[in-house]
């Protein structure tokens, strides 16, 4: 888990800090060097066909992708844990009703919903957060509900009832702390998934809007000039692959560790 997390931390801090040190930002156009190659005129990675610094755009794109992923995963965490915990804890008809809603939402084609949202409300980064979080919470709710139902049958919950602990206190003090590990592990696996979805949406032109950029947009742009300038595709693509791989590895290790600890 450690090396993977360190790589993610390095990428994230580079995306946050390095743009502050660069002489160029991701928007301004350097008229003197359009389509510059690597290491020319202070552009370490060159410039794109509008003369914008590629390094600045790569870092800002990474920053946008990561923050969309984090925000969407947090949205999923909050809604999913609350929904799943209530459904699993209350049980019975309430549980049936709440989980049928989840099933119904699962059945909606995700891309269709996102495109509809974009068409109705226009493209905005906030909408991307919401749209992705809206889909990701469904699985989180199912995972948490299953955990809560399993925990509910453990004797220590019965012991809490015997100790006079009110239902709400039992849920907050006994159930949720014991669900937290699984929820965090699943959250860590949600982040790379969201990174992928965001990049996919942006690649299709449905994500964030120019001149703001994201890894998906950069890959899309890079793919158009990959025959002349493969670095334009390989660099954002490489960062994307590295991020997804490392986040997934860290998440799975964390989950495995939880499973071991539960034994």
């Amino acid at each position: 888990m450690k090396p993977a997390l360190i790589i993610v931390a390095l990428i994230a801090s580079a995306a946050l800090l390095v743009p502050l040190l660069l002489p160029y930002d991701h928007i301004s156009i350097d008229w003197n060097s359009v389509r510059a190659g690597l290491f020319t005129d202070g552009h370490l990675l060159g410039t794109d066909d509008l003369g914008r610094d590629r390094l600045a755009r790569l870092l800002v794109g990474t920053r946008v992708t990561l923050s969309v992923a984090l925000a969407a995963a947090l949205v999923a965490l909050v809604i999913g844990v609350a929904w799943g915990a209530i459904a699993g804890w209350v049980g019975g008809r309430t549980d049936e009703f709440m989980m049928r809603i989840v099933d119904g939402l699962y059945a909606l084609p995700f891309m269709f919903v996102v495109i509809l949202l974009m068409v109705v409300f226009g493209r905005s980064i906030l909408l991307v957060f919401l749209g992705i979080g809206f889909v990701e919470w469904l699985t989180m709710a199912r995972v948490v509900r299953g955990q809560v139902i399993a925990l509910k049958q453990r004797p220590f919950i019965l012991a809490a009832e015997a100790a006079g602990s009110p239902a709400r206190a039992t849920l907050l003090r006994h159930i949720l702390p014991n669900v937290a590990g699984v929820a965090v592990a699943y959250l860590m696996l949600t982040v790379p998934h969201v990174v992928m979805i965001e990049s996919f949406l942006s690649f299709l032109g449905l994500g964030v809007q120019e001149p703001l950029t994201s890894l998906g947009i950069l890959v899309n742009e890079g793919s158009e000039e990959m025959d002349m300038n493969p670095a334009a595709l390989l660099l954002p693509g490489g960062v994307l692959v590295l991020l997804i791989a490392c986040l997934t590895i860290a998440g799975e290790r964390f989950r495995d560790r939880l499973v071991d600890a539960a034994k």
């Binding site: 453990r154 004797p155 220590f156 019965l158 012991a159 809490a160 014991n178």
Partner: peptide
């Protein structure tokens, strides 16, 4: 209860 470890919140 019967199972001592399961009846204590871990």
């Amino acid at each position: 209860f019967q199972d001592p470890l399961a009846s204590l919140d871990p």
